[in-house]
């Protein structure tokens, strides 16, 4: 089970790194899919079958919508991506340090995944200009935040997962309005 959760956590980080490194819709879709897989596996490993299913449904909807709409390009690591690559690597190392060294107790893989995805998705939202990349990062944020509720002392119930899944699934369906005046 430890190996599964470790692989799931690394998958979530890899997905967030792909979101940071990709500009094309296919690249973003792979990112969201990996983040979804990682957090769903972590929820299922914890016995939260229904909650994990909400995340899976939301993330899958977002991934399909990313693949379906827009030009089918990958846009992975376009020229000038070195700072993004460094960000992805440093965020992973810092998250690992936080989850395994600074903090103690169980759920280290979940802590690692949450910190890494929160940091990288926030970085993507701050740096992104295209609607698809910002919305994909928001979907990843929603999935990570919903999963972080499992770290609470009391049982969070299904609500955070349901709302997180709904946000992730609905983000790409939002109409992207063209800027216009008052």
């Amino acid at each position: 089970m430890t190996a599964v959760t470790a692989i799931a956590a690394v998958s979530a980080w890899a997905g967030a790194a792909a979101l940071v490194l990709a500009d094309g819709r296919r690249g973003l879709a792979v990112g969201v899919a990996l983040v979804t897989f990682g957090f769903t596996a972590l929820a299922w490993a914890d016995g939260a079958w229904l909650e994990g299913s909400f995340l899976l449904a939301g993330g899958a909807l977002c991934t399909v919508e990313l693949i379906r709409r827009g030009p089918p390009d990958w846009g992975l690591m376009p020229p000038g991506s070195t700072p993004r690559l460094i960000l992805a690597a440093v965020a992973g190392i810092l998250a690992l340090w936080f989850a395994a060294s600074v903090t103690t107790g169980p759920d280290a893989p979940l802590r690692f995944a949450c910190v890494a995805v929160l940091g990288l998705a926030a970085g993507r939202v701050l740096q992104g200009h295209a609607a698809a990349s910002v919305l994909s990062a928001s979907a990843a944020l929603a999935i990570a935040l919903a999963s972080a509720s499992a770290l609470a002392l009391s049982d969070p119930g299904f609500a955070p997962y349901l709302i997180g899944g709904m946000i992730a699934g609905g983000a790409l369906f939002l109409p992207v309005a063209e800027p216009r005046g008052a």
Binding site: R111, C114, V115, L118, G119, A121, A122, V125, L126, V134, A137, S138, L141, A144, L145, A148, L151
Partner: peptide
């Protein structure tokens, strides 16, 4: 979105 990430980090 930055606010949400910061609040989430605070929660963690």
């Amino acid at each position: 979105a930055l606010a949400v990430a910061l609040l989430g980090a605070g929660l963690l």
